[in-house]
């Protein structure tokens, strides 16, 4: 049976179809839901085996990226998301979803404007950090290649070394740091290892032909799909 995955969106979320495709290819059964509607349908979250907060510009980044959708996920959903994590459900926030999860207090640190000052779309290489607690990068060996597309992706944390020592750093930029993130941190997880946030878009490298440079055989080794497969593996207890 395909594990059900809820993809949470807000007005202006735009990579939900992309991540739904990634989940499907990884073996899950994605269901795209508006955060505003989940508030009245708590059962949807209770039945989820995976939860994704998709990327985009929820609420047009008004008042700062992710702030208003975070409000939906806290004031609106109450403890729904925290309870899902307590049940052992893997949660991933990508790009705007990462911003949302930090604002909602599910992930440590925060994301500021890129040090370069503007929105950047480019391809990056991500190195899975071996001693990370994250279930989403568990078993990953090769680097993951995928695009970034963000203006506010500079990860800040009051004590990044402690975060790393704790296994809280899941992914690091192996190519040039595109946004000034501290310690080249690209993705972080919470203390349970279930919640991952990252700025890059592994959901946009799920087919070999999506890679801008590598031929199919090489591209396959670096698919972003690997993250979703790891998440699904954990969700089904494999």
């Amino acid at each position: 049976m395909r594990p059900p995955a809820v993809v949470i969106t807000g007005p202006g979320t735009n990579r939900d179809p992309d991540v739904a495709l990634a989940l499907e290819l990884a073996g899950a059964d994605p269901d795209i839901r508006l955060a505003g509607e989940l508030a009245g349908d708590r059962g949807a979250l209770t039945g989820a085996a995976l939860v994704v907060v998709a990327g985009g510009f929820s609420y047009g980044d008004a008042l700062g990226a992710g702030r208003l959708l975070a409000l939906d996920l806290t004031v609106g959903l109450g403890d729904g998301l925290r309870e899902a994590v307590e049940r052992g459900v893997p949660v991933i926030g990508i790009c705007n979803g990462f911003q949302v999860l930090t604002r909602a207090g599910l992930l440590p640190g925060s994301l500021g404007h890129n040090s370069g000052g503007s929105f950047v779309c480019d391809w990056v290489e991500l190195e899975p950090v071996p001693d990370s607690r994250s279930v989403w990068t568990s078993g990953l060996v090769d680097t993951v290649h995928c695009p970034i597309a963000h203006g506010e992706g500079r990860y800040v944390h009051p004590d990044p070394d402690a975060l790393q020592a704790n296994g809280g750093v899941a992914l690091r930029y192996a190519s040039e740091n595109p946004n000034g993130s501290v310690n080249d941190i690209a993705g972080v997880c919470d203390e349970t290892g279930l919640v991952l946030g990252l700025m890059p878009h592994p959901e946009n490298h799920v087919l070999t032909r999506q890679h801008p440079v590598l031929d199919a055989d090489e591209s396959r080794r670096h698919l972003g799909l690997a993250l979703f497969e790891a998440g699904v593996r954990h969700a089904v207890g494999a």
Binding site: R15, D18, F119, V120, P212, V213
Partner: peptide, 23 residues
Amino acid sequence: IIHRYDHEIRGTTVVRPLTGVER
């Protein structure tokens, strides 16, 4: 200019406006 545009969203871009081994 091109890096300021999201040309990757939707996962449909197969040949990009920048190409080559160093893009």
